[in-house]
Design a protein around this nucleic acid. Structure first.
Lengths: 324, 324
DNA sequence: GCTATTTATAAATCTTGCATATTAATGCAT
DNA sequence: ATGCATTAATATGCAAGATTTATAAATAGC
């Protein structure tokens, strides 16, 4: 018994319109085709559904009993299909993303707020983690994708460039560093430096950049948190080298930043996902938004991905940030 | 979006068996056919359901979300189909039948009892009515079929011969009528006769039979109820002419019956149904039983359709008898 | 690197479904 | 009653779709 949905639709059409010719027109098929479909249905269930002659079509007792069954069946099917269609048309579901702490505290919340304003049925789970953990979480499917530093070259992961996160020199406003014609490694290494802790990705990048310029980064002070480093700069303990995107830099009138004239002080921020693994439509959509935001701010001066929160801000988000 | 049940079945098979090759074997199709079916489904809903390469097949996030939807859909469909199949396999429903009073009080209850013992999900509604009302009720679809007297020749009704109901001569045991060599119309009209009321179908038949034999039925007494007529015979008021099937004749040792030697004293009992109108399987089944019972007793002597109640009898039946 | 396994693709074949044309039946009007 | 109009059933040819066979490409394990 291989009853078909088209057969059921045909049955309901004949019942609804009270005739084969009218029903066939409604179904956009010829009348003989409909006659055959109905007969197939009747043959397959082994029951006559209509008593029909050339002048009248009437449900049999069996047809009357089965009509509500078929109606419910089609209703359920259609509503399930409508449900499925929503998946592709209106993004929804939960997006899980692993992200570097600096990025999680930086431009991401604003982007999420904007996205959720347009796609209210999407929720987010943010997991902030250091670079290596981001990779691991993507690989273990703990998250749908990750935002991390570029340069990974794993066979099972794909990366997409988002933007670059430039390390900038942070100095007290009015400090001589602001007047320098050139902020190269040899120049800035003349000043006492506030550097991040050895374990951080920022420090690793600084060390590598100094090495690339044939120098060694020598800290006057070390800090684990960027806010601490900023405080040290404000206290005059030295110059810091921090990501331009760091929110810790904002809101202080007494400090300023300038780019460092060395290609080594830039890291690529990339989206990391499993190779050959497709994502929820909502995730596809969100990564597009991420890239669009990155491109638009790349065209303008100022810190990368410096998105303003339009309405509500992070507090309004149903976002769970889970430390790692 | 014209999603097919076969596509959904294919999806569930791949999920259940974890691979296209195995699933294709289970579905009795070739592997390329299955690949195409899954791709069609994915194209039609606009969503990728599996991430697959030559070595592994894995549900996407979307596939995971949609799996329960599809599972429920198929489950509902299959159970509805099983439900429908029961209609043809196990008769059920309510059989409504209009029947002559003599038949309703005669062999029918036992037949119904036997039928219900084998088909417990069938219930009956009996409506006893005189011949004309039987026809009308069949025509108006108040009943599924009727049991009445033959000779109807309406264009919209079909009849099927069931048996013949013979009118017999009823006389006190030991009466001279029992010894007659021939019980023809001229002979029996010599005796005082107890006839049924003019309004009854029995009386009409008697009158016609007498007329056919060139005679006129002259009653010594008239009765409206057969039991009255029987009592009159027992009291010696005359000979009665009654249907052989009448239960009123049973259980009296002091009366006897004999056939009347005239073809006019027989009426055909027929099943009456609407022409070109199909019946519930349960009804088809029951009419078969009716005919089988009629045939089997036609081969044996004795009153027609004299079925014994095997168990319980009419009191055990969930049968509503509605007077008319 | 080779082999075995598994999905994807290509092409040919086969089935199925559909449309056109026609027939048969039936109600209605004359 | 007779003819007309309407409607479902049938026949047939065709076209689209599905399926199979054969083959290719990719990948994991040895």
């Amino acid at each position: 018994m291989d009853v078909n949905l088209r057969q059921i639709r045909a049955f309901l059409a004949v019942v609804g319109l009270g005739g084969f010719t009218r029903a066939a027109a409604a179904l956009n098929i010829s009348q003989p085709a409909l006659t055959i479909r109905i007969r197939q249905l009747e043959d397959q269930i082994g029951l006559r559904l209509f008593d029909r002659n050339t002048r009248s079509v009437q449900l049999t007792r069996v047809g009357q009993e089965l009509l509500p069954v078929f109606q419910r069946l089609m209703k359920d099917f259609d509503s399930a299909m409508a449900d499925i269609r929503e998946f592709s048309e209106e993004p929804r579901g939960t997006i899980r993303v692993a992200v570097l702490p600096s990025f999680a505290a930086g431009p991401l919340p604003a982007l999420i707020a904007g996205f959720r304003a347009r796609n209210p049925r999407v929720s987010f789970v943010l997991k902030d983690a250091v670079g290596k953990r981001v990779l691991a979480m993507v690989r273990n499917e703990e998250v749908d994708f990750g935002i991390g530093v570029g340069g990974v070259d794993e066979p099972d992961l794909d990366t997409i460039d988002v933007c670059e996160d430039r390390l900038v020199l942070v100095y007290p406003r009015g400090h001589a560093a602001g007047e320098l014609p050139l902020a190269s490694v040899p120049v800035i290494s003349q000043f006492p430096l506030v550097l991040m802790d050895k374990d951080t990705s920022v420090r690793r990048l600084v060390d590598e950049a100094f090495a690339g310029a044939g120098s060694i980064a020598t800290p006057a002070c070390e800090a684990t948190y960027m806010s601490t480093a900023v405080s040290m700069v404000r206290a005059g303990l030295g110059l810091a080298i921090l990501p331009a995107s760091a929110t810790e830099l904002r809101g202080f009138a007494d400090i300023a930043t300038r780019p460092i004239d060395d290609a080594g002080f830039v890291r690529r921020i990339v989206i990391i996902k499993r190779r050959g693994s497709s994502l929820l439509p909502a995730v596809e959509e969100f990564t597009k938004v991420l890239l669009a935001a990155a491109n638009s701010c790349a065209a303008t001066p100022g810190p990368c991905l410096d998105v303003e929160v339009q309405d509500g801000g992070t507090e309004a988000l149903a976002v769970g940030v889970q430390g790692q």
